[in-house]
Design a protein around this nucleic acid. Structure first.
Lengths: 229, 229
DNA sequence: AATCTAATTCATCGACTGTTGAAATTCAAC
DNA sequence: GTTGAATTTCAACAGTCGATGAATTAGATT
């Protein structure tokens, strides 16, 4: 039947995305996934191979879209600011806003995706490799752009600052609702636009403070050795 | 045999902590844990009940120690700064340094513990409730202290800023090593003292920027309604 | 030494795990 | 309408899952 398969593949990916996000990779069986998708158990193996490949397929599906949007927003920010360097706010916003937009207005699949990414990012089993695989090449572009914004900042500090941003970002879009209880309802995890309005200045302030505290040692700034892929 | 049991309980907790941290709750079987601990399978159920209770026991064991150290450091910071308010740096340091110290110099059990907490914090299955259970009462004390540091800042913003700090903090002490690869060795996840030196100014800068961007609306500051437990 | 409880061992329960091979079905191309 | 490959179904595999009840051992108390 040729391309009736594409439909089932997407149904399996959708179900896997949702269930992996809720209970984690090991907390979900292939039978859970295929029965939620309304297809036969064997089809997961037929289309995706072993279970780990299914997780990889889930992560890969939306990563490309997200990365394209990030790079497009960054290019636009640079264009508007030229010939001067774009603001730190604009660069960081280009990195975070696509998540905000997709999570708030992209449908439930995107919400599951970000909840899953948060778990992957914080897992020693997957975090060190899978996050790098899908996102690092775009992060390098942003680090370089931030090097233009903070010409006196050491490259190492930019990576550390990105690391902190990454933790805040993934936890935010995981929407675990902990902060809702903690703040007795003052904060609402689900109001993503409101959170994002705070996330960006927090991170901009963090970058500025860290770069200020650890400037480049001596004379000339703006070296920024291009990093290989 | 009365109190020979305490030894086995600790052995089970140690093994569970280590394995849960590496592969997550669902990725580890009770047989994995008890065989790593060198005890019979049935002893986990005998001492801790069902598997979920074992996870709770693991989380609870070190939370009390950590919370005590945090509160002690906060009191000390307040004492040294009195009669003025303590600095933002001192307050945030009191919250984060105990993690840094225990992870760097507390033995491998603490490292596993923090890696596990990072996964719990980012998991929709556990994050919303278990983190609150063990840490929120201490967080409330710190939020109040931060209210003294930033008297013009709205309480809601302090909770959001804490949320971002929480994401950066837990990812940092998860030591997934992603940033090591990303930065081509420029950053070393395992050099915790170096990371902590950056984490604190980043978060202080974030708090300041967020509080500055969203000051209290009108006249009088310092209301800070005491929040119930 | 006898007693009693706490702790440990062992065997086993039914259910579920990821994966696969063979058979059945579907659909496009001829 | 027949061929042929892609897709789906079904049944089953060997192994593991969390949990438990019964029997055994250890240790303190009497």
């Amino acid at each position: 039947m040729a391309r009736a398969a594409e439909g089932t593949k997407q149904k399996i990916l959708d179900a896997a995305e949702k269930l992996f996000a809720r209970r984690g990779f090991h907390g979900v069986s292939i039978r859970d996934i295929t029965s939620a998708a309304g297809v036969d158990v064997a089809l997961s193996n037929y289309h995706f191979g072993p279970k780990k490949n299914l997780l990889a397929a889930v992560l890969e599906r939306r990563a490309q879209i997200l990365n394209d949007e990030r790079l497009h927003m960054l290019a636009e920010a640079k264009r508007l600011a030229a010939p001067e360097a774009a603001s730190a706010e604009a660069v960081i916003n280009a990195f975070t806003y696509p998540l905000n937009n997709r999570s708030a207005r992209g449908g439930p699949g995107w919400k599951s995706y970000f909840a899953l990414v948060a778990q992957i990012n914080n897992s020693p089993e997957w975090g060190g490799v899978m996050m790098s695989q899908y996102f690092d090449h775009v992060v390098h572009v942003f680090i370089e752009a931030l090097g233009d914004v903070f010409p006196d900042c050491q490259e190492r500090e930019l990576y550390w600052a990105y690391h902190f941003l990454s933790g805040a970002l993934t936890l935010t879009f995981a929407e675990t609702r902990r902060v809702d209880n903690l703040s007795a309802g003052l904060c609402k995890s689900t109001d993503l636009d409101a959170v994002h309005e705070r996330l960006v200045p927090f991170c901009v302030g963090g970058f500025k403070a860290l770069c200020e505290a650890r400037k480049k040692p001596a004379g000339k700034s703006r070296k920024s050795p291009r990093r290989g892929v």
